[in-house]
Amino acid sequence: MRLVTFNVLHGASPDDGLVDLDRFAGAVVALDPDVLALQEVDRGQERSHGADLAAVAAEAMGAATTRFVAAMTGDPGPTWRPASRTLGPDAPAYGVALLSRYPLVGWRDLHLPRIAPPVPRVRRDPRRLELAREELRTAVVARLETPEGPLLVASAHLSFFPGWNQLQLYALRRALTTGGAGRGPAVLMGDLNMTPRPVRAVTRFRPLVTADTFPVHAPRFQIDHVLARGDVGAVVDARAVELPMSDHRALVVELDRSRLG
């Protein structure tokens, strides 16, 4: 089983700033995932040619099931606002997605804790203090029916504000460990906007891959993660992959699930 997480920057290349849907689909084909977690996914946005990027990725990988969860709606700019849980399927949106070649037998959409008012932050490059308005952050948790048995998988995109992203990760951990979700193996994937140490401390999940993912051309930080609880199989390959789009590298984990305990 090949697991992949990828923050796709709404399909844009950092080199030319353009969204090329063929380039986007080609990147998904090259990754060849069985389970794909996507973040910064556009649906019906002018900047990405009005495309449903989750649907484009699903066709490219031959997904059996796809789940998109909107975080924001409207057009990026003055009309940008948090998406409601009742957002219509034709509304312009942006969020996270989970795609799988295995059947999806149940899911839960999560709207994570959010800072509502603008708050100060320091940008790294160029270094300056600014007021930033935080987006709504979302995740999707799905139970997949694989040949080796059920597997709980999550795709998430957390805040860049220190401390607040840890609060969101606590909420996500609860969703993966309480009630029926706490039984059996689980995998958490996504752009968590945190380095490995605090991620491990909050989730108590084990990392399946250690590799810097950001910024794409000369990565210095690992802020994208694939983590597991329970027996998900043996890791036979784990790496970060640079593709001709996005400001993140994708993370790829190959599992041998033939000898589960």
Rank of each mutant, 00 (worst) to 15 (best):
P126K: 08
P126A: 12
R127L: 15
R127D: 05
R127I: 08
L129M: 11
E130C: 08
L131G: 04
A132C: 06
R133F: 02
R133E: 12
E134S: 03
L136V: 02
R137D: 02
R137P: 02
T138I: 02
T138M: 00
A139F: 04
A139P: 03
A139V: 07
V140N: 04
V140G: 02
V140Y: 03
V140T: 15
A142D: 04
L144N: 11
T146A: 01
P147Q: 09
P150A: 09
L151P: 03
L152H: 07
L152N: 01
V153L: 11
A154Q: 11
A154W: 09
S155A: 15
S155W: 12
A156I: 08
H157C: 04
H157W: 00
H157K: 04
S159W: 13
F160L: 15
P162Q: 09
P162H: 11
G163F: 14
G163T: 12
N165G: 09
Q166F: 00
L167F: 01
L167Q: 08
Q168P: 02
Q168T: 04
Q168S: 05
L169E: 04
L169Q: 11
Y170P: 00
Y170E: 15
A171N: 04
R173N: 00
R173T: 13
A175G: 05
L176S: 08
T177I: 06
T177R: 04
T178G: 10
T178P: 05
A181H: 15
A181D: 14
G182L: 07
G182T: 06
R183N: 07
G184W: 09
G184N: 04
P185F: 01
P185K: 03
P185G: 04
A186T: 04
A186P: 00
V187K: 05
M189S: 00
M189C: 12
